[in-house]
Design a protein around this nucleic acid. Structure first.
Lengths: 162, 162
DNA sequence: TATTGTTATACTCTATAACTATA
DNA sequence: TATAGTTATAGAGTATAACAATA
């Protein structure tokens, strides 16, 4: 902690955030078969991104996942087979495709998000109101900062409303 | 937001926390081959848990991962083969084993943690000092609340110092 | 008999490489 | 020729089931 400052430095907060992130990674990082969710962690990452960037093509999705086209193509195969995702022809280029979540896919992401928010809320309910208020303010600041940095290096298509 | 209250409710904060958690899941959820870390997400979950609960047996580790013994046994095979983990005979029961991180395993977890804290710090550096202070207070409250709930239902072995 | 851990088998996820179709 | 996407193949991760060893 910067002793001469009224405020904690980035590294101080990062250490604390890292511990919480690891908690969530262990808690939510399990595979599909045992978790309440009917999709794997990999499939869920696809759903999150396609939800945010509706109509994204496979190449761009691959970049955001930091994966490879063949892996993502197979992931899309399975998501399409179970009716969560849809491939459609691109309007601009006949060699590209557009990826969209189906209504079932949108509903599943909403369900998973709701279940996770509920598990978070159980912890948050134990906290004091002041701590909750501080956490909310801090998280909102983090989101804004993250968006600012992302916007700097990737103007890209429009971001989602959230 | 509870309009009649000075403080946000658990659900309000959960919604914001969920968005940030999804950001980190997409950012850090990639596989081993392309990420900077030489271990997969699954292997990293093992390392986190064994770091925290040194000497844990395979059965308990399996429960914490919400996985199955056969899967965890294979994971340990590979972690042991690359020298990050060690199986030793249990002192109390000859059908159990104790899992320990090797010095290399401990060093790897520390390296990954440091790299992730650095990537978090890049975002945190963009935030105002007041927002950082709020986030730190909120995260500390969250950790305390999480530990309190976990302690209620799982006394178990001693928790780590962090 | 119940518990701990491993092995056998099958399916998913991942990557590299080779391929088709389009620009 | 370069780019978008798919298919072939191999290794990692996962689960169910069957197994050996111990309590």
């Amino acid at each position: 902690m910067h002793p001469a400052s009224q405020f904690p430095g980035p590294a101080d907060v990062a250490a604390s955030a890292s511990v919480v992130a690891e908690l969530l990674e262990v808690l939510w990082g399990g595979s599909r078969d045992l978790a309440a969710t009917p999709v794997s962690v990999s499939q869920l990452r696809v759903l999150y991104i396609v939800e945010e960037w509706d109509g994204i093509n496979l190449r761009t999705l691959t970049e955001r996942l930091e994966s490879r086209p063949s892996s993502v193509s197979r992931l899309c195969d399975r998501l399409e087979a179970v009716g969560l995702l849809q491939r459609t022809a691109s309007a601009v280029s006949r060699r590209e495709l557009e990826l969209h979540l189906t209504p079932a896919g949108l509903a599943l992401v909403a369900d998973i998000r709701a279940a996770r928010e509920e598990s978070l809320a159980r912890v948050l309910a134990v906290m004091s109101g002041a701590d909750r208020r501080a956490l909310l303010a801090g998280l909102q600041g983090f989101r804004a900062a993250s968006a600012e940095l992302a916007g700097d290096r990737a103007p890209g298509p429009e971001a989602r409303t959230a």
